[in-house]
Structure formats: C-alpha cells, structure tokens
C-alpha cells in the first residue's frame, strides 16, 4: 500500500519534532510535501546575536535553513531513508526585524541517486523582502534493503 501524502506529512512532522536542536529553538513545521517545506521559529531573546539592536543571530537563521532544507529533502517523492547536509551557503540580505517570527521555505529542486539539491529563503513578517537565502547539497541515504513498488 502506498503511503498517502498525509502519512508522509505526519511522518515528517514527527521526524522534525523529535530533533532535540529544533525543539530547543522551538521550530514548527508549517507545511510539507513533494520536496517543499516551510518551518518557522518564534522570536526569542535567547537567540539574539546583537544585544544593542535585539536582532537574531545569523547562526539561528542558519539552523532554521538547515532543518528546513533537510525536511524538503525528506519529503521528496523519491523518499530517502535519511539525509545529512553536505554543504550549505547562506547569504544574509538584511537583519530580521526584532520581535518577529522567522519562516524558512525550502525547495528540493533536483535529486540524483546520492545527492539532493536545495534552495531556501527566510522571511520575517515582511514576506516581500527575504532576510536570507540559502543553497545547499544534501546526501540521500538509501534504506538498507530498498523497497520496490510492485
């Protein structure tokens, strides 16, 4: 029996919510499916990188982008058994507005047997101007005994 897209979304949500670091940063899976993922993270004083302005640390945005990229890979139609980041480049376009929730949107736009290619953007409440953009490559971990569709 094929897994439905709801099953996949539920599995992905459980997977992400079981990650201790994502939990510590209070990340929430907003959307998932077919190589696309949206994950958001509330503003928190513990994530501030510049105490004089209250702007969130770039490293917290990186963590969100990395998690969201991984989620997009896991939700791809080819359904890898697991994934890990090979490399991730983040461009910081502007400081996120203090007090606002940050949402990352990632798209796994191409996969080969071993590699998934991802692009992502992060926004605060102003969804017309991205805070940061990312591109990355992720591994495709195959299940040990590959399941074949009948």
């Amino acid at each position: 029996m094929a897994t439905t897209s709801e099953d996949k979304a539920r599995i992905a949500r459980q997977f992400i919510e079981a990650i201790p670091f994502s939990k510590a940063l209070r990340m929430h899976l907003d959307e998932i499916g077919e190589g696309l993922a949206a994950i958001s993270m509330p503003y928190d004083a513990a994530l501030v990188g510049d105490p004089r302005t209250g702007v969130i640390h770039g490293g917290a945005v990186s963590a969100l982008m990395d998690t969201c990229g991984g989620a997009a890979v896991m939700s791809h139609a080819d359904a890898p058994a697991g994934t890990a980041t090979i490399d991730l480049r983040i461009d910081y376009m502007r400081p996120a507005t203090p007090g606002q929730r940050i949402v990352a949107r990632a798209e796994c736009y191409h996969v080969t047997r071993s590699v998934a290619f991802v692009r992502a953007q992060a926004f605060d409440e102003d969804e017309t101007r991205p805070v940061a953009a990312a591109t990355g490559a992720f591994t495709i971990e195959q299940a040990r005994t590959p399941e074949r569709a009948p």
Binding site: A18, I19, P20, S22, G58, G59, A60, S62, A63, G82
Partner: peptide, 24 residues
C-alpha cells in the same frame, strides 16, 4: 549538550548547531 543533537538515531550534532558554532 543533548539539545545540540540533530540526528537522535546516530546520534550526531545538528548541522545548524555546527554552522552557528563556526559562524560565531
């Protein structure tokens, strides 16, 4: 710290935690 884990099955540090450490 346990909260830095990204893959509880291996277990391994979260790529985002590693990135934040390097950037800092």
């Amino acid at each position: 710290d346990d909260k830095l884990i990204g893959n509880p099955f291996l277990p391994a540090l979260h790529g985002g935690a590693t990135a934040a450490f390097l950037e800092t």
